[in-house]
Amino acid sequence: MGILCLHGFGANPVVMKHQMSVLAKYFDTTWEFHFLPGPVGCPAAPGVAKTFPGPYLCWTLDFDPITNRTALDLIHQTIMDRGPFDGVFGFSQGASIVAAYLLEQAELHPDKPLPVRFAIFCSSPPILAGDPEYIQRLFGALSAENIKRFQSAKLDQVAQLPAPVRASAIVLLENLAVMAPVHGKSLSHYLDRPPAEIPCVVLPDQYKARLSIPTLHVCGKDDPPSMRKACAINASFCAPKWRRHFNHSSIHNLPRSPTEAQEMVSHMAWIISHSQLSRI
């Protein structure tokens, strides 16, 4: 049972293995975890540098479509070269980027099975688009005045945007703000760009593709509301029949208490056991 694991922003596979260490005590011995390092160097996530040596890595530093595309291609090439993998396990930015990859595969190949049979998404920020055509559909018709409203990052200005862009922009701004201690950049760094280079959140009412495989969506009970909102939005891309949710008490981390770790692993076992049934 091979599972490809993708770490969060400002971390690396060693950090992720530590995050999973309590869970690992309850894993089935047939589960094999393969860790993929992100392709981009970045600052360490808060608290990481005190305990773990670098390099500190991420999947995209600027969250723009070009670097998103590089990360999506890396995931695809890894699955082709090192797979097949039965499932994926992503934490934070790793969850977001692998969700984007799977949705893109579902969009490109609607009549084919996905490259994996199940997915575990933990503390996922919003899914960001890597498809220039999708971004053009969403942002391409914006007037110069509306682009300025978007780039102002002021909610009263953003509220005047056309509905599809408004919804995507609000989710983006909420999460960029709460993630500022991690990425360390101002909102203008992400917004003062040509529209085609602004990070673009993918929302279910704007994107048709869905994931029909069993999925587990894990979130901290005390995570910031915008992050919990992102986890819920991302879960709505997944089939309710094969979807499970688990909330735990660690803030933007994986469960650290034995009781919660056991409970999460039981959910993992459920989606893994049902991963064949979902294709019937």
Rank of each mutant, 00 (worst) to 15 (best):
H274D: 12
D131L: 12
A261G: 11
K185W: 11
Q160M: 14
I271L: 15
P53G: 08
Q160F: 11
Q105F: 04
S257H: 12
P13A: 09
P240I: 04
A169Y: 03
I120S: 03
H217Y: 03
A159T: 05
Y134M: 08
L108E: 12
S96A: 14
P195N: 06
V178P: 03
Q105M: 14
A180K: 14
A45E: 01
G94Y: 00
N234Q: 01
L142V: 06
N146P: 08
V88S: 02
S257G: 14
A209Y: 07
S257Q: 11
P53M: 06
N253K: 05
P113T: 04
L6K: 00
K221F: 00
A49I: 00
F35D: 05
A24S: 11
A45M: 06
Y134H: 11
P181V: 02
T29N: 11
N12V: 10
K208L: 14
A269Y: 13
P181Q: 01
P126R: 02
F85Q: 05
C122L: 02
R256Q: 15
M227R: 12
W59I: 00
C122W: 05
I233C: 06
K154I: 07
K25G: 13
E260R: 06
R243C: 10
D205T: 13
Q77L: 12
R149C: 13
I66N: 09
T259W: 14
M268H: 11
P39D: 07
I127D: 02
F9W: 08
T60S: 11
P84W: 03
L114F: 10
Q276N: 13
Y207A: 07
A49Y: 01
C122G: 06
H217R: 01
A169F: 11
H183D: 02
F52A: 01
I97M: 05
G140W: 10
P195C: 09
A24V: 06
A269P: 05
H252T: 05
Y190P: 05
V116M: 04
L161Y: 06
Q77P: 00
R117H: 14
P43V: 03
R82G: 04
D73V: 13
A269D: 15
A44R: 02
S273R: 14
P53N: 09
P115K: 01
L6V: 00
L172A: 10
T51E: 09
L138Q: 10
I272H: 13
C5W: 04
S123T: 02
A99V: 00
M1I: 01
H245R: 04
R117Q: 11
C219R: 02
L211S: 04
F85G: 01
D73P: 08
E260M: 09
P113Y: 08
H274K: 10
K221S: 10
V182S: 12
D111S: 15
V40R: 02
C219L: 09
L216T: 05
G10W: 10
Y190G: 08
P195S: 04
N175T: 03
Y134S: 13
C231L: 09
T215M: 08
L36S: 11
E263T: 13
P13G: 07
I170N: 02
A153L: 12
S188T: 12
W242H: 13
P43C: 03
R228A: 07
V40E: 07
I251R: 14
L6D: 00
D81G: 05
